[in-house]
Design a protein around this nucleic acid. Structure first.
Lengths: 167, 167
DNA sequence: TTATACTTTCAGTATGTTCTGAAAGGAGCG
DNA sequence: CGCTCCTTTCAGAACATACTGAAAGTATAA
């Protein structure tokens, strides 16, 4: 079993996962891997977190989809092993990019769809408002796309903003 | 009933709401108000969206908590009326600030808690990783806090980033 | 090819969230 | 004060999501 204080982190990180749009088990597994010194396998995860093997399997798959952990193979060993992305910067970069993909992009798409399809039905003021909204979201989209182009660019942007807020 | 194409927007905005951590009805009400020319009352919302009065009431309360809509009083009329924040910039600013409060801040808090309480239990490499993570999140927190200080600052940052990505 | 070891899928169950509509609460009018 | 109108609260129902553990699938070793 993980140390007592890691346990607290795992549980609270787990509770927070639902705020971030992932389920509790996924977040707990993620926290467990963040606080593990070495790669862990499925058995270890089910033992430590007291969840079923099926649940662990589905969650690991989804976390890999998010890109925040990797599967590692050990020669001569049939178990799959998992490690969390070790670099803090890389991890947040991956999370940010995935969240943009899942949350921001669909919202922008929806606005655009409305503006191209439904334009004849709208009161002028409403149409203007949606147009403003679309323009602003397009600007933000371009900024985010550039910022999240790669990790190097993300670092550059953080440095720029650090300088900016220090003045 | 809202126009056919507004209906589509309302429904798809509603579906997306769950990606953003709000429930479908809240998102549908929000979309309905965004696409309404004038303030609407509870009856109008329940009619247009075919939801119960209780549901509408709870959702409106929560949307006001988010700050994306206001209650308006009309003299001589007992109904409460609701309007969405009309300015696109203001709306996104309010959403961003609230999401930071609900999602980012608790995550940072949890990391800090772990680092102050549990430090004796950790393998050095894990401790270093969590420290890096905390530092990076603190940097981002400072940037976000400044960026979201007020709408004027948010605009300034967007302009800065626009210039930055154009080069 | 078969057996074994490991992971993934699946159907059913458990849990959590959302919604309903009746009841309660609050405010204004007469 | 009582009535009416409007909103909010509440307990229960409906719905959606998460999880279980057996079954199925996959890969490796013999």
């Amino acid at each position: 079993m993980a140390g007592k204080h890691s346990e607290h982190f795992i549980e609270s990180w787990g509770s927070m996962g639902v705020l971030w749009g992932i389920n509790r088990s996924m977040a707990r597994i993620h926290a467990f891997l963040i606080t593990s010194e070495e790669p862990v396998d499925l058995d270890r995860i089910t033992e430590a977190l007291q969840i079923s093997r099926g649940n662990a399997s589905m969650c690991l798959k989804e976390l890999r989809n998010w890109g925040v952990l990797q599967r590692v193979h050990v020669a001569g060993d049939r178990h799959d092993y998992y490690v969390a992305e070790p670099e803090a910067m890389k991890m947040l970069f991956l999370i940010a990019r995935e969240r943009k993909r899942r949350e921001f992009d669909p919202a922008l798409h929806s606005i655009r769809l409305l503006l191209t399809e439904g334009k004849t039905e709208k009161h002028e003021a409403v149409h203007a408002r949606l147009t403003d909204f679309e323009r602003l979201m397009t600007t933000i989209d371009r900024i985010l796309t550039k910022c999240l182009e790669d990790e190097k660019m993300t670092k550059a942007v953080l440095n720029l903003l650090k300088s900016f807020i220090a003045r």
